[in-house]
Design a protein around this nucleic acid. Sequence first.
DNA 1: TATACTAATGACCAAATAGTCATTTGTCAA
DNA 2: TTGACAAATGACTATTTGGTCATTAGTATA
Lengths: 277, 277
Amino acid sequence: MMKKQLIMEKALELFSEQGFESTSVQQITERCGISKGAFYLSFKTKEELIFSMIDHFLQQFIVDIDQSVKEALHKEDMFVEFYKGIFKTFQKHSKSARMFLNENTNPANKELLEKVKAYEVDMTKSIAFMLEGLYGETLQHTKYDLVYCIKGFMKSYAEFFIFADLRLDLDQLAKSLAEKTEIIARHSTISFITEELNQYMNYHHEEMVSQDKVLELLELSIQSVEEAIVLESLQLLKGQVAHQTYSKVIIIGLIENIRLQPECKWQARLLMKYFQF
Amino acid sequence: MMKKQLIMEKALELFSEQGFESTSVQQITERCGISKGAFYLSFKTKEELIFSMIDHFLQQFIVDIDQSVKEALHKEDMFVEFYKGIFKTFQKHSKSARMFLNENTNPANKELLEKVKAYEVDMTKSIAFMLEGLYGETLQHTKYDLVYCIKGFMKSYAEFFIFADLRLDLDQLAKSLAEKTEIIARHSTISFITEELNQYMNYHHEEMVSQDKVLELLELSIQSVEEAIVLESLQLLKGQVAHQTYSKVIIIGLIENIRLQPECKWQARLLMKYFQF
DNA sequence: TATACTAATGACCAAATAGTCATTTGTCAA
DNA sequence: TTGACAAATGACTATTTGGTCATTAGTATA
């Protein structure tokens, strides 16, 4: 449905400018050039719009961050690549990023906060995964602190991307932060965040990957995808989620088939989680 | 006026729970146990309340941070002391901190954003000042990056204080972050934030210290302070702001007289700025 | 007790809010 | 041209919002 897309895009602008609470449905419909009734044909309530938006935009955002991690992994200058990817994502999705940063502290709505937190946990885990890839066991007890340092760097330097419209030297920034990250990784000895504390802060908020949820999302993709191979892979995967049939290697292959399709990136991610690969 | 205090305190609770926009005057008056009319005897509008609150609570907050810096300066474990002070402040003013973090990204109101940003700039300068004290010129071109790293650490670890109610080992946390900070200071060579970029991000938002503003705030203190020495110092300082009379050393002495009075801490800070000491 | 004054109340207002629904418009195939 | 169906409209409602003001309660002085 094209209308939904339009509404979400214009709403994102308004939300990133004013926040959720101070944006009215009226304003949204005005900016879209549609009537109030038309809005309620696409979304049952204003809340439903907000939740849809969080899923829609933060999924894109997280998938890109994930991609940065994956591409950076095992490269010579892993952290440089990582930070470059991160901040490119910040530039590309600056409106989403702003909304993300705005509303993840503002607990006007408990459920909403949980949802945003869940995405942040996702990001946290991506970073931890990257560190494990590079340092293996050698980092062990300072790992989580390093994760929080990296997140701190991201949040602090995000200011430059989100609140000012500047031409910035991304390479220089990435090099600068990569150096700092490596230095900490190599020299830091005193840790604060224990395994347990990390568990408490993260797993606590983690979103469940339920069978129903996965099936629902797969169905959504199936209806919007055209390409034959992708479509068939999705259908097979849907069958697999309902009743296990194929072996691990086949499933991975099927996920690989859909992974690059823009509409399926999140589904691919979720399936990996669901099958615990 | 006692009513004002009561309203601001209860409003702080509500704002830190729900944010500005989703808190109504009705809710505030209910929690205070007063009528709607009584509210408007203390504040002309809801906006005036918000602005008063930002000044009231963020001034306390910044003064405490400042104090942490001052007390830490030149000590053996400067950074440990600094971080300990910072996070104690976070615990003590957790509601203010939450409001601060909530609303400094949410530009529902431009003026409000400017005000909150101005306080953040204040904090940034405090940290820069501390670094200058410790490293002098040796740090020069990586100084501002270090400031942003420290701010990043603060923001990232603030999560533990503001969104969870945990018993935390502050000493361990302070040691851990101090070590990281020192490591970066000592080993980092690649900088990103130039003098100019820092100027652009900070001085841009800096709040003017106008004569009128200082006089107004001094008058406010004069009316609320009882102690003779403090009161007389305030009056002399007010005269001094209006027409220069005394020498620098005398003025500093007078500021010293008022500095420890809780109601005057912010005034002391502002006077130092105003006279450019 | 009578007077004067301030502090506090809550019914009231206009404006804005999220959400509804009878009606109109647009677009097909027959 | 007609009829059937979906898409879109905007006047409407019920509720909530920030803010006002005639009235009342409380208190101190004469």
